[in-house]
């Protein structure tokens, strides 16, 4: 299938470690392979992307454990006020974007946001951000894909769900199918491309400064602020919001009064 082979090519970007390296030039390295093993004939490769995800998972887990511990009805700590503010913000966001009946999606959307943000920001600790590995982000795209179609067939039933592919007229069916298939690819490519672009531009800036000035201080700061921090927040937010919009748009149940 053409789509899949294109994806392989994209993945190759992240796994290849070759550029004009012989002449001491710029090189973009893929994630390091930490371990390789075979179970029941399947090859498993543990890359840097996976180990960094473990680190971020533990970090975020501890953070939210501390935030959510020992809650009181009459809050008297700043910690609980912060936790309530974050939860309230995400509840409001999901209610505004998807509607009241989808409020059960709030935990997933908040998790997606903080997970993406945590992984992208892990580059500030010197890790290679796992979100610059297409496999990681494409997995989230596939989750979105499954959520979209689960919602479609749940709200419309089998008949209504299939019929929604023929909207607005029957001739549009191939176009609709194509756009459904391309949704997870385009959504995850956007996230991956932004973070990888930040990584590559950061690499170019450091490489150029090392050649021309020898002391790369202060000058990379605005680049890092924009490409690492701003871009990470925006992409996490955009990925979450697009997931919400796509899932809510797939609703083909009866229209309800607002």
């Amino acid at each position: 299938m053409n789509l899949l082979s294109n994806l392989d090519a994209v993945e190759a970007v992240t796994t290849v470690a070759e550029a004009a390296g012989e002449s001491g030039g710029l090189s973009v390295e893929g994630p390091l392979v930490v371990a390789e093993f075979t179970i029941f004939g399947f090859d498993f490769v543990i890359t840097e992307s996976i180990t960094v995800q473990w680190v971020v998972l533990i970090g975020l887990g501890l953070l939210f454990f501390v935030l959510g511990r020992n809650l009181k009805t009459n809050p008297d700590s700043k910690r609980q006020a912060l936790a309530e503010m974050v939860v309230g913000m995400f509840c409001g966001l999901v209610n505004d974007t998807m509607g009241k009946k989808y409020s059960k999606y709030t935990p997933y959307m908040a998790a997606l946001f903080f997970w993406s943000l945590g992984l992208s920001l892990s580059c500030l600790l010197g890790f290679r951000p796992p979100t610059s590995d297409f496999s990681v982000v494409f997995a989230w795209g596939m989750i979105t894909f499954i959520l979209i179609h689960r919602n479609r067939f749940k709200t419309g039933g089998l008949g209504g769900g299939l019929k929604s592919f023929t909207e607005p007229i029957f001739i549009m069916t191939p176009m609709n199918l194509l756009s459904e298939l391309i949704t997870p690819v385009s959504q995850s490519l956007r996230h991956f491309g932004n973070i990888l672009a930040g990584l590559v531009i950061g690499g170019i800036v450091y490489w150029a400064l090392e050649i021309f000035i020898k002391v790369p201080i202060l000058i990379p700061v605005p680049f890092s602020l924009y490409f690492d921090i701003f871009s990470a927040v925006i992409q996490a937010f955009v990925f979450m919001t697009l997931t919400m919009v796509y899932v809510a748009m797939a609703d083909c149940g009866p229209e309800e009064a607002e």
């Binding site: 090519a9 994209v10 190759a12 970007v13 290849v16 070759e18 550029a19 973009v28 490519l189 991956f192 491309g193 990888l196 672009a197 590559v200």
Partner: peptide, 10 residues
Amino acid sequence: LVFALIVMFT
């Protein structure tokens, strides 16, 4: 960008 990176680095 992704296309350019593929062409440049692979």
